[in-house]
Structure formats: C-alpha cells, structure tokens
C-alpha cells in the first residue's frame, strides 16, 4: 500500500512529538486506543486564556496513526477550546488522503483531541 506524501512527511518529520508533565497547569492529556489493537495515541494540549498555546503527541501505531496525531497537534496550536472541538476525523482523512483501511487512525486522533479537551476541562472545573 502506498502512503500519501503528507503521511510520509509527518512520519519522517513528526511535528510536536513529546510530552508535557500531566500535572502541569493548563495541560490536558488524552490517551486513546489499546496496544492489542495496534495503536495507542497520547495527545496533550497546553491552554492559556482559553487558547491552545502548545500541543504534543506520542503515538504507538502505523504510519497513518502517527501522521494523524502529528497533524492534530499542528492544527490544535493557536485554536480556542471551542474551535478545537470542531476538528473532525473527516478533515484529517481529507488532509492526509487516508485510504478506507486507515480511517480508524483519524477517528482515533479525533477521540484523542476530545479526550485531551475533556481532561483539561475537568482539571479547570475542579479548581
């Protein structure tokens, strides 16, 4: 199966790969997937004044899963919480030109975004 140029680019030059400390102020962490399914994504956002100022990811999975999460961090940066909620897996599919068998990678990335946002919200609410 041939990968699109964009997937290959994200795979070879992942954007924003790394981690924030989970307990750091303003950080939301989303971890989705399972090792048995062959992919696990960890996506983190750093929020200041309702805006995502930084994002990071770590992914165990195929090239498309890595590219989906890398792209997600790129898109998240600079967005408000409300704007970030609107990112859809279909946007990722379109941008990366993912074939049908890889659509689950984009779904996972959307889930990871949602999970990170929810985690941030939970931490903010409990303050």
């Amino acid at each position: 199966m041939a990968y699109s140029d964009k997937v290959v680019d994200h795979f070879n030059n992942p954007r924003n790969m790394g981690s924030f400390k989970k307990d750091e102020d303003g950080v939301g962490t989303g971890m989705v997937g399972a090792p048995e399914c062959g992919d696990v994504m960890k996506l983190q956002i750093k929020v200041q004044n309702d805006t995502i100022v930084d994002a990071k990811f770590k992914t165990f999975g195929c090239g498309s899963a890595i590219a989906s999460s890398s792209l997600a961090t790129e898109w998240l940066k600079g967005k408000t919480i409300e704007e970030a909620q609107k990112i859809k897996n279909t946007d990722i599919v379109q941008e990366l030109n993912l074939p049908p068998v890889k659509i689950h990678c984009s779904v996972l990335a959307e889930d990871a975004i949602k999970a990170a946002l929810a985690d941030y919200q939970k931490k903010a609410d409990s303050k």
Partner: peptide, 19 residues
C-alpha cells in the same frame, strides 16, 4: 515516539492499564 515505551520506562505496568 511511543507512549507505551514512555509508560514502561516510568514503571507503569501496561497490563494494569484500562485501555
């Protein structure tokens, strides 16, 4: 790049995680 490797290095037992 692997969150699993990071967790394992932190001493998390991956089998105990609720995935």
């Amino acid at each position: 790049m692997s969150p699993l490797y990071e967790m394992a290095k932190e001493g998390v037992d991956l089998k105990s995680v609720q995935w």
